[in-house]
C-alpha cells in the first residue's frame, strides 16, 4: 500500500521525513542535478529574458512587459502565427492522438510477428527525420507533381494547383503531412503499454460478460492504460503546438503571405535571424503557457475514461 505522509507542518517533523527518505533522494539526485542545471536554469533564464531587450551582443536591458505589448498590439504576423498554430494544434493534436492509439490497438490485435513488423512500418517515418521532404515532390505545384497529375488525369481539376505556395491550400497540406507524421512517441508508448496490460484482467473481464473487442477496449484496456494515455497526450500537445519544421520545409520560410507561419517559425525568425532574443523568449513563454493550459484541460478529460 502506498503510504500517504502529510507534509510536515513543524520543521523538525519535516527534517525527520527527509532523513527517513535519504535513499529516495539519492536515487533521484543524479537526474535532478542534471535536470536543474541544464533544463530548469535555461528555461527560467529564458522567461526572465522575455522581459528584456536582448540582442545577444549587448547585456540585456529590462523593458518590462514591452515585448508582450508589442506581440499583441503591434505584430500582426504574430497574431496570424497564433491563429495558425492553434488551428494546426486543434486538428492534428486530437486526431493524431486518436489515430496513434487506434493504430497501436489494431496492431496489438495481430500475431506477435506481424505486430513487430507493423510497429516498425508505422514508426519508421518518425525515425527517418527529414523524409517528409518527399511530400514536397508529391505536392509539387506544376502539372507533374504526383497529386496534380493524378487530379488532372481524373478531370477533377483543369490546371495544376499551387499546393505549397497558394495560401488557400498551404495549411491543409501542412496539416495532412503532420497527421502522417503523428504516429510518434505517443504511438510507441501505446504499443508498449498495451503489452503491459495484465492478461488476467482480460480473463476476468470475459467471465464477467465482456463480449467483444470493443467492450474489452473500453472497460479493461483503456482504464489500465491511463498512464500511457496521459504520456501520449502530453506528447501530442508538444508535437502539435511546436509545429514549425514541417511548415518551413514544405512551404518555405517565410511562407507566402505568412499563411503557414507558426509561433515556432516566428520565434526562429526573431531569435536566429533578427537576433531579438528578448522578443523570441516572450514568444516561447507564451507558447509554454498555451501548452500548460491545454495540458490541464486534457488531464481533466482523461480522468473520465472508463467511468
Amino acid at each position: 500500500m502506498k503510504q500517504k505522509t502529510p507534509v510536515a507542518k513543524r520543521p523538525h517533523r519535516l527534517r525527520r521525513e527527509i532523513a527517513r527518505n535519504v535513499d529516495a533522494y539519492l536515487f533521484i539526485a543524479p537526474f535532478f542535478l542534471i535536470f536543474f542545471v541544464f533544463t530548469v536554469l535555461p528555461v527560467l533564464t529564458s522567461i526572465l529574458l522575455s522581459f528584456t531587450y536582448y540582442n545577444i551582443l549587448e547585456f540585456p536591458s529590462f523593458v518590462g512587459l514591452q515585448n508582450y505589448f508589442n506581440l499583441f498590439l503591434n505584430d500582426d504576423v504574430f497574431l496570424l502565427s497564433v491563429k495558425n498554430t492553434l488551428l494546426i494544434a486543434v486538428i492534428t493534436g486530437p486526431i493524431g492522438y486518436l489515430v496513434s492509439f487506434l493504430f497501436a490497438w489494431f496492431i496489438n490485435e495481430l500475431s506477435p510477428t506481424l505486430r513487430a513488423i507493423m510497429v516498425v512500418v508505422f514508426y519508421a517515418p518518425s525515425i527517418s527525420g527529414n523524409v517528409y521532404m518527399v511530400w514536397s515532390i508529391l505536392f509539387s505545384g506544376d502539372a507533374y507533381g504526383y497529386i496534380n497529375a493524378f487530379l488532372l488525369n481524373l478531370g477533377f481539376i483543369f490546371e495544376p494547383i499551387q499546393w505549397l505556395t497558394d495560401p488557400k491550400y498551404m495549411l491543409t497540406v501542412v496539416i495532412l503531412v503532420m497527421l502522417w507524421m503523428s504516429l510518434g512517441s505517443g504511438f510507441l508508448a501505446f504499443v508498449a503499454g498495451l503489452q503491459t496490460v495484465d492478461r488476467a484482467m482480460y480473463e476476468a473481464g470475459y467471465v464477467e460478460g465482456v463480449k467483444n473487442r470493443w467492450q474489452e477496449l473500453w472497460y479493461i484496456t483503456l482504464p489500465t492504460m491511463r498512464p500511457q494515455l496521459l504520456f501520449g497526450a502530453v506528447m501530442s500537445i508538444t508535437a502539435s503546438f511546436s509545429a514549425g519544421d514541417v511548415t518551413s520545409a514544405l512551404c518555405g520560410f517565410p511562407s507566402t503571405d505568412y499563411a503557414a507561419h507558426t509561433m515556432i517559425n516566428h520565434l526562429n525568425d526573431y531569435g536566429n535571424i533578427r537576433f531579438e532574443m528578448g522578443y523570441a523568449c516572450a514568444i516561447a513563454t507564451l507558447l509554454f503557457f498555451m501548452m500548460i493550459g491545454c495540458n490541464q484541460v486534457i488531464q481533466k478529460l482523461l480522468r473520465k475514461i472508463g467511468t
Binding site: P42, N268, A280, C281, A284
Partner: peptide
C-alpha cells in the same frame, strides 16, 4: 513509489519542462 517532501513539486517541474520550446534555451 514513494512519497517524500518535494516529490510532487519535482515531478510537476519535469512535466512542465516537457512543454518549453528548446529554441530559446
Amino acid at each position: 513509489k514513494r512519497k517524500f517532501p518535494g516529490s510532487r513539486v519535482l515531478y510537476k517541474s519535469v512535466e512542465l519542462a516537457l512543454m518549453f520550446s528548446g529554441a530559446v534555451t
